[in-house]
């Protein structure tokens, strides 16, 4: 495998510090990542017809105020969209990360009869293609009157099979059961052991999954669109989608501005949480 060869080759002079090739690769990848962002930001300042003529441009233009006017027009309320999205995404993130860690803890720390069956079920749930399931889901939500209710979007996140799977896989080597036992000797209850001993160890994993959960929920369009029919409940992606309207009447400039604005909170969340995905965070608690 070529990868290992490269890794081996570079490793010889590693002691002296990082190889310049590492930086070259990283910078190229970084530029590739920045490219769509820069195009998006530039397009936010360009007019619809400029974008139709050349959708990819690295130079900003002068239409930012016009785009902002369209954006803040009658149908688009960026502030309320932002808060709605924030409520949903924060709720989803909390539910999925906290409860998945708890479920993973149950799967690892305790020896119960249905444990293996439960884990298999979680894996199975994860494998079912989502498109058709969603039909049953929204029909059900309509039936029980959960439309225009954020809880219909938040609470299902308590059962996030993929996050549980990740937490379990992470916890397997990272959590020493001796630590749990030590906690018991100190007289801590099981729930307290989870909150005070397990969670600190799981910080990098929780931060990772929190980022993914937040980003996915923030960008989710399909279910919010079908379940939220009142303007005051619209999330950011719904508002962006509104600007697209119809193929001959898409306000591209405003769409890109809205996209840029809706990405900013994600960057903030990511920057905040990525602090926890660094060496040293988890180390303190792991013993043995």
């Amino acid at each position: 495998m070529s990868t290992s060869k490269i890794a081996l080759k570079h490793s010889n002079d590693m002691r002296k510090g990082a190889n310049p090739i590492i930086y070259i690769v990283c910078i190229i990848l970084g530029l590739l990542s920045l490219f769509p962002f820069w195009v998006m930001v530039c397009n936010a300042t360009r007019s619809t017809y400029e974008i139709q003529a050349h959708a990819i441009s690295f130079l900003p233009s002068v239409s930012l105020p016009t785009n902002y006017e369209i954006l803040n027009g009658k149908t688009f309320n960026a502030v309320s969209g932002f808060f709605n999205s924030l409520i949903v995404s924060t709720g989803v993130t909390f539910c999925s990360v906290y409860f998945s860690t708890l479920t993973a803890f149950a799967l690892i720390a305790y020896n119960w009869k249905l444990r293996q069956a439960f884990f298999t079920l979680i894996l199975a749930v994860m494998m079912i293609p989502a498109q058709v399931i969603s039909i049953g889901f929204y029909q059900f939500m309509y039936k029980i009157g959960m439309t225009n209710n954020f809880l219909a979007l938040i609470l299902p996140a308590i059962a996030s099979p993929m996050t549980v799977f990740f937490m379990r896989q992470y916890m397997l080597p990272a959590l020493s059961l001796d630590l749990v036992a030590a906690g018991r000797i100190d007289g801590a209850g099981e729930f307290r052991i989870f909150n005070q001993i397990v969670i600190p160890i799981m910080k990098p994993a929780m931060a990772t999954q929190a980022i993914f959960a937040f980003v996915n929920s923030w960008n989710e369009l399909f279910l919010p669109m079908i379940l939220l029919t009142r303007k005051e409940n619209y999330t950011m992606p719904i508002m962006v989608s509104l600007l697209k309207g119809d193929i001959y009447k898409t306000e591209y400039g405003a769409v890109y501005l809205a996209l840029t604005l809706s990405v900013l909170p994600l960057l903030v969340v990511y920057l905040t949480l990525s602090k926890y995905i660094v060496a040293g965070v988890a180390l303190g608690s792991v013993k043995g």
Binding site: M225, I226, K231, S241, G245
Partner: peptide, 10 residues
């Protein structure tokens, strides 16, 4: 009003 763009197929 409920406005849903056709461009996203929804």
């Amino acid at each position: 009003t409920t406005i849903i763009a056709t461009t996203d197929g929804l």
